[in-house]
Design a protein around this nucleic acid. Sequence first.
DNA 1: CATGGGATTGACT
DNA 2: GTCAATCCCATGC
Length: 192
Amino acid sequence: MKPGFYDRPVLEVARDLIGCMVTHQDCAGVIVETEAYHDSEPACHAFVGLTPRTETLFGPPGRAYVYRSYGIHALLNAVCEPPGVGAAVLIRALEPIEGLDHMRARRGVEAVRQLCSGPGKLTQALGIELHHNGSDLLSGPVVFSPRPRAWRDVEISIDTRIGITRAAELPWRFCAAGSRFLSRPVGAASAV
DNA sequence: CATGGGATTGACT
DNA sequence: GTCAATCCCATGC
């Protein structure tokens, strides 16, 4: 992405990341689902202020924020907005493009739709771990790159965020309209 | 120092 | 639909 891409309001970045590519080593996918988080609302980890955990969130934009969820999964975010503001875009689903066999080996499943259709699934498929927290998204090893031509005019659907209890009413979830690779259909309120 | 709660997933009823 | 697994870390005594 261009320098400065992430130094903007997190809602704009979350929308603009739909259709962009995520690459790690030999695996790559197109982002089809994101969510925005900002320190002004209680669902965001940064809501509690600057702590060891949220240090990356309050740091410079364009870095990866990777944290452990439910003691099991690593979740990938792109840090946004200027230093001092705790904001990030959660990457929730990818359409697999390259390295599918490597993804299958790490995920232990065959179906393409099962490889990256969830925030914990895609980090497992791409081999993204906690030690990637704080890494630069321009220089890698985890790299975000602009939309391929075919995704230039992707249509965006907006929905409420998934799996949170606080500020659950905010429409801060962005999806590639009609994608078969979402973690969950648009408009499917709760349900597990 | 002890405790409680997740930005989830997959197995089972 | 229901539920356990599992661990980092914020919070409170």
